[in-house]
Simulated assay, not measured.
Amino acid sequence: MPKNKGKGGKNKKRSKNNEGGDEKRELVYKIDGQQEYAQVVQMLGNGRFDAMCIDGVKRLCHIRGEMHKKVWIAVGDIVLISLRDFQDEKGDVVHRYMPDEARRLKAEDKLPKNIRLNEGIASELDDDDVDEDYFEFLDEEIDINFI
């Protein structure tokens, strides 16, 4: 058996990138005409997703190679999209905003007030948003000995 000469496996390599994650980063703003803020609507796989841009256009976006497998993007995240000159319906991700950065953008009126920030699927249903499609059961209505 060969002697292990390295300092660790893939987990060591992953933690190496997260060393400076605790301190505050400088906030990146969009460049007018070239970039746009967007919220991820649906993940499509292969580094692609649908995003609803702030200008009202739904675009197919691609995670560029520098960010691929280093920055993880989920549904509901706020990202900065670089627009393509030759394809208006497509774009490339330049930057992913952390939740606190997205709140700062919203406070500075860079994002619209009606946008829901980094809440994901779990918070889609609030107490004031309950429709007829959702039922609320009381404890006595649930039969525990059903099975």
Score class of each variant (00 low, 15 high):
3 K>F: 13
3 K>R: 13
3 K>I: 15
4 N>T: 12
5 K>S: 11
6 G>R: 13
7 K>P: 10
7 K>S: 14
8 G>L: 09
10 K>W: 08
12 K>Y: 09
14 R>S: 07
15 S>T: 13
16 K>T: 10
16 K>S: 13
17 N>I: 08
17 N>G: 05
18 N>Y: 14
20 G>M: 07
21 G>R: 08
21 G>Y: 12
21 G>V: 04
22 D>Y: 10
25 R>Y: 08
26 E>T: 06
28 V>M: 08
33 G>V: 06
35 Q>L: 02
35 Q>P: 01
40 V>L: 07
42 Q>T: 12
43 M>T: 05
43 M>Q: 08
43 M>K: 15
45 G>Y: 06
48 R>T: 14
48 R>Y: 07
52 M>V: 09
53 C>V: 02
54 I>M: 09
54 I>L: 11
54 I>V: 15
55 D>S: 12
56 G>P: 03
59 R>L: 01
59 R>I: 00
62 H>L: 12
62 H>Q: 12
63 I>D: 00
66 E>G: 15
66 E>M: 06
67 M>S: 06
70 K>I: 07
72 W>Y: 15
74 A>K: 12
74 A>D: 15
77 D>A: 01
80 L>C: 08
81 I>F: 07
83 L>G: 05
87 Q>Y: 06
89 E>Y: 04
90 K>F: 03
91 G>V: 04
91 G>K: 03
93 V>H: 00
94 V>P: 00
94 V>W: 01
95 H>Q: 07
95 H>C: 08
96 R>M: 11
97 Y>D: 12
97 Y>V: 06
97 Y>P: 05
99 P>L: 09
101 E>F: 03
101 E>V: 05
102 A>K: 03
103 R>A: 15
103 R>K: 15
104 R>E: 15
104 R>C: 10
104 R>T: 15
106 K>C: 08
107 A>M: 11
107 A>R: 11
108 E>Q: 14
108 E>I: 04
108 E>P: 02
109 D>W: 06
109 D>C: 11
109 D>V: 11
110 K>C: 11
111 L>E: 02
115 I>P: 01
116 R>P: 01
117 L>V: 14
117 L>Q: 02
119 E>F: 06
119 E>M: 12
120 G>H: 02
123 S>D: 15
123 S>C: 08
124 E>H: 07
127 D>V: 13
128 D>C: 05
128 D>M: 05
130 V>R: 02
132 E>Q: 08
134 Y>E: 13
134 Y>C: 10
135 F>H: 02
135 F>C: 00
136 E>A: 04
138 L>K: 14
139 D>I: 00
140 E>M: 04
140 E>Q: 10
140 E>F: 14
141 E>S: 07
141 E>I: 00
142 I>G: 05
143 D>C: 08
144 I>N: 08
145 N>I: 03
146 F>E: 13
146 F>C: 09
147 I>N: 14
